[in-house]
Amino acid sequence: MADTIASFWGPVTSTTECCENNYAHSSYIAEFFNTISNIPCILLALLGLINALRQRFEKRFSVLHLSNMALAIGSMLYHATLQHVQQQSDETPMVWEMLLYLYILYSPDWHYRTTMPIFLFLYGVVFAVFHSFFRFGIGFKAHYVILCLLCIPRTYKYYIYTEDLSAKRIAKLYVATLVLGSLCWLGDRFFCKEISTWPINPQGHALWHFFMGFNSYFANTFLMFCRAQQRGWKPKIVCLMGVLPYVKIEKLKRK
């Protein structure tokens, strides 16, 4: 989209732009709505981190919430500047986050406890190096989709083996926010010309950020519940102020 006022960050160097006028509200923020729409993800990840630390969940979940925060901050930097370096600060953490999800999903049944984290860590480092040099475009998107698809079989297995209705509801909310967010992203990506003629831009990419912030929170909450069940911690789903669900451990068995 064309600039409307002076640009603090200089010419756009990112390989992807969204359907939002650049620098329409501030000379310091290229895509205003796409930038601030990451704030809910940061706040939700912070709540998840506090709960994970307070109830002494395994460190993997604290790292997971921190990775959600890092991804949202990277996305803010990218959309605020539309510079290629900041674009990679958004895309690379996306891959790292999916590798972490793969570890959390599959590690309980992995017989060799050190091989999986070492492999995934090295994979993440190698990807970051190659992505910084070769600037993957379609390849990055295809790679990210494959990583997401690898998570589906295990997530579905957790769902069908979970009897708690509240936990199943969270899994359904995860799917619902993913579908809604994806529809917003697709609309913003492929129907920008039509949307630009509307009196009001619905800011589909910003809505994608909003829904995906909740999507990540629901995914993390569901995985924390499943892991607590595996550890025999008798978890239950309660709601913060009657609205936001989180996992509460009734009895923690120490070994």
Rank of each mutant, 00 (worst) to 15 (best):
T16M: 15
T221G: 12
P117W: 00
A30H: 06
T81V: 04
N220V: 10
T4P: 01
A6W: 12
L252I: 08
G187Q: 09
I146D: 13
S75E: 03
A52D: 04
S132M: 13
P153E: 05
T177Q: 10
K168L: 12
H84D: 11
Q229I: 15
S89T: 15
Q87D: 09
L186D: 04
V238S: 13
L105V: 10
M241W: 11
D90A: 12
S62K: 08
W198S: 07
A176L: 08
I160Y: 08
A80K: 14
Y23Q: 06
L120T: 00
E97D: 04
F191G: 06
Y156S: 09
A45D: 03
Y159K: 14
T13Q: 06
F210P: 10
M1W: 06
S67E: 03
I29D: 00
V125H: 04
E91R: 15
I146F: 09
R227P: 00
V85I: 15
E17A: 08
G10W: 01
Y217N: 09
F190N: 09
E163Q: 14
I146Y: 08
E250D: 15
I152A: 11
P245K: 10
I73H: 15
V145W: 15
L165S: 05
F32W: 11
G48Y: 00
E20N: 02
I160F: 02
I160C: 12
W198E: 03
T221W: 13
A70R: 11
V85E: 10
F127G: 03
L150R: 11
Y28L: 05
M116P: 10
C226P: 06
P11I: 04
T15F: 05
A2N: 06
N201W: 02
L64Q: 13
F121R: 06
F225Q: 12
K251N: 15
N201G: 07
L82D: 02
F214L: 13
C19T: 04
N51D: 08
F190Y: 14
W96E: 09
P11K: 14
A228L: 02
Y23C: 04
F218E: 12
A72Q: 06
Y161W: 04
I146L: 14
G137C: 08
G242Q: 00
L64G: 10
L186S: 04
A52Y: 00
